[in-house]
Amino acid sequence: MIKTRLRDFLITRDDWIFAVSDYFHPHGIRSTLRYVPDDSGERELAGKRYKKYDFDVAFDFMRMNRPEWVEDVHVVPEENIKEVLSPSSAIARLYGLDKRVTEIVDILEREGINREMMGITGSLLPGLQNEGSDIDFVVYGEKWFVARDAITKAKSEPGPIEDIDMDMWKNIYNKRIPEISFDEFVLHEKRKGNRGMVDGTYFDLLFVRSWEQIKDPAPRGIDTGTMRTEAKVTNADFAFDSPSIYKVEHDEIDHVLSYTHTYAGQALEGETIEVQGVVEQIGEIKRLVVGTSREPKGEWIRSLTLLEKEGYI
């Protein structure tokens, strides 16, 4: 049995490259197609050219070429997998060669985070980056919060780590197309502290569960309609996970899930949130799901506590 987790990459026998998108794989590895060999591709690895596929294009390709692998994500049978790429392996390969990666690693190591708890995902993991590629930096488990604090501290001091300027925030906002205003988006994002610039390159600090944190998956429920409501967050330990999980105090809803990275880390424990999403019934439990489509319309999470504190409401 192949052991993988969120943000690993895998390579099939056809040299298709997928990003693992889940911790749980009941019948094949749940993932999303990212790169396919193509003579006209704009990226190159080991003498072979590749084309990067965005989400919708990847699904079109898979429906045409491997329709039996298409569900809500792509499910790759284990017998078709040639290699699994762990984000931690990219640290060993890039440290000392990529100045930007080296600088981030050095900052985190000074805070007591071992390299085994770090990783690089995205295009740098298989070696298919280009000049415009961001750095998707992974930290595993509870060490992620230590790393986030270290990056926040580094942004306030002279050095290679800097905060994001307003032009970059606008680019991120326009890319994500959230259902909240730009000002509210930036207010929430700046508090999260997991984005920055290193030597002029944008990077994101991504949470992935440690192996000990991976438990049995929640079963899929039945969609019963939509809801807009307010609730108090009682636990946000996995607010930066994918999906983000917020345990809430509410008459009907047990917890809120967000499948879009836009609302990861959107609220802290003890805060009141406004959320609109799809109600999912699982036995006696209801959860409220945000991000039910690639660019979810009419779905959001806002921290009313944060907005009130900063004078937005």
Rank of each mutant, 00 (worst) to 15 (best):
V84S: 06
F203Y: 12
Y202Q: 07
V139Y: 10
S31G: 03
T201A: 08
D136C: 09
S133T: 12
Y53R: 03
D106Q: 13
E249L: 13
E184L: 02
D204N: 12
V75G: 00
G196N: 03
S40T: 15
I172W: 09
L288D: 00
S293G: 07
K153G: 03
I222W: 08
E249N: 12
K155C: 10
D136Q: 05
V76G: 09
H25Q: 11
N65T: 15
G277Y: 02
E44L: 12
S156M: 15
I104N: 10
L128D: 04
E252G: 01
T201F: 10
E252A: 03
K247W: 11
L128G: 08
S258Y: 00
V186W: 02
P243A: 05
K153E: 14
D167L: 14
T305Q: 02
G291V: 09
V248M: 00
M1K: 11
P37W: 01
K175S: 14
W144C: 03
R195S: 04
K175T: 15
A58W: 01
S89D: 15
N194H: 14
Y23V: 11
Y140F: 15
D54A: 13
P243V: 05
T226G: 14
V139M: 09
F55C: 06
D8H: 15
A147S: 09
K286Q: 15
R93S: 09
I285E: 13
K175G: 09
N80L: 15
N65A: 15
G112V: 13
I161C: 09
E42Y: 04
E274K: 03
E230I: 12
K155T: 07
E184D: 11
E142G: 05
R13E: 14
T12D: 02
W169S: 00
E109W: 05
E179M: 10
D199Q: 11
Q213W: 05
G311L: 03
I29Y: 05
V248H: 00
R302M: 00
S133I: 10
L187A: 13
P26E: 13
R66Q: 03
Y263V: 00
N114K: 15
L125Y: 06
G221N: 04
L307R: 03
V278N: 13
A90D: 07
K155A: 11
N174Q: 14
A236Y: 03
D167C: 05
G277T: 10
D22E: 15
I222D: 11
L257H: 07
G221C: 08
L268H: 12
Q129W: 07
E103T: 10
V233Q: 01
F18E: 04
L205F: 11
R228K: 14
F203V: 08
S242H: 14
T121V: 02
V101H: 04
R7N: 14
T4Y: 08
I104D: 09
D216I: 11
W69E: 02
S89V: 04
K190A: 11
V75D: 00
P243E: 03
D204V: 08
T262L: 08
H188M: 15
E299F: 01
I29W: 06
R66A: 04
I245M: 07
V84K: 07
T121H: 01
E212F: 11
G119P: 12
S21V: 12
M227F: 12
I17D: 01
